[in-house]
Simulated assay, not measured.
Amino acid sequence: MTQDLTRASASELSGLYGARKASPVEVLEAVLDKAARLNPVLNALPLIDAEEARAQARASEARWAKGEPLSPIDGVPVSIKELIKVKGWPLTMASQLTDKAPQTEDATTVSRLREAGSVIFASNSSPEYGFKGVTDSPLNGITRNPWNTERTPGGSSGGAGAAVAAGLGPLSIGTDGGGSVRIPAACTGLVGLKATYGRIPAWPASMHGDLANTGPMTRTTRDAALMLNVLKGADVRDPLALPPTDVDFVAGLDRSLKGLKVGLVLRFGDFFLDPEVEAAVLNAADRFRTLGCEVVPITPPTENGETGRVFVAHWFAALQR
């Protein structure tokens, strides 16, 4: 094929697999080849489990050949944030202080991706214990933004953001307590979703308690919805998980946006707003208006630093649990 398979979305790959125009093995090899070239620069994937991923890709290829894929993301490469349990990998927490013994079981999100046939090929980088909005750690060093390697991809799911933006797998799993999916998604131009708490069960529980969600990071909204369809649903090990739902999050993505209300926040307090950023946000607001949305300016509560104090109180209360 002449198409760059590393730039295809998960949805596009699913179509290519079904039409026998590409295979999971071919896609994985393209991703691994790109990772060999780019990861030494970006430092986004601290662990690449190539041989196990190849076995997963071959199994997926056989399912597609029989017309029996496990899901629309069967055979699609995905990386997992290094704060999340993956069977056979160390749970590093991006720290030199943690036990590096291989884990004996998967976190719920990982097991659901396996059940869907996704190819789990690498871990993606985080700051130590996920405690910063940029991604560097004593264990792995600095992760860089593929759009400009002098810039950060944000954090704490910065490795996920850098990897997906660079074409090192179209799907990734991050975690978000105070913006750790949303910040890197913004810094790297991705779709990052912090779903309603409990929609994606969290087992084992994060050290941030009920502030932290596990969520998809993708290049397209459709891919995020495909992942949410796989990750949703209750888990008896998570007492705060929401009941099962039969909602298809892909359904309706092509409907008109007319009548939807979109909140517009330009400033948080007196912090400097770069004119280029302001122009880009206002341009996006105009695009929503042309699509029929009602754009409503919102002024967040900032009096006497109230917002920051409320967040910090919740944050440290969660850590005490």
Rank of each mutant, 00 (worst) to 15 (best):
L16C: 14
P138K: 03
K132R: 14
A44I: 10
G161I: 04
L32P: 00
L240R: 14
G155H: 03
A202K: 08
P146C: 06
K85E: 15
R114E: 12
Q56I: 01
L47W: 14
A205D: 05
M227Y: 00
D238K: 12
S71P: 05
R7H: 10
V191T: 14
P243E: 06
E128M: 08
F288M: 09
P102F: 06
A251E: 13
L42Q: 08
D223I: 07
M207W: 08
L264Q: 09
A202F: 12
D274Y: 00
T98R: 14
D33P: 00
V281S: 02
T220C: 10
K34H: 00
I120D: 05
D286V: 05
P216E: 03
T98H: 11
R114C: 12
P146M: 05
D246L: 12
A279E: 13
L16Y: 14
L273G: 01
E276G: 12
D286M: 12
P153F: 06
L113E: 08
F121Q: 07
V78M: 07
G189R: 08
A35V: 12
N148F: 04
T175H: 04
S60L: 05
G130C: 03
L28S: 14
F288G: 08
A44R: 08
G233Y: 08
I84V: 15
S111W: 12
G169I: 03
R151H: 10
P204V: 11
E61V: 10
S111N: 12
V110R: 10
I183G: 05
L231H: 06
S156C: 02
L319T: 08
T152M: 03
L45I: 05
V281R: 06
T135H: 04
N43Q: 11
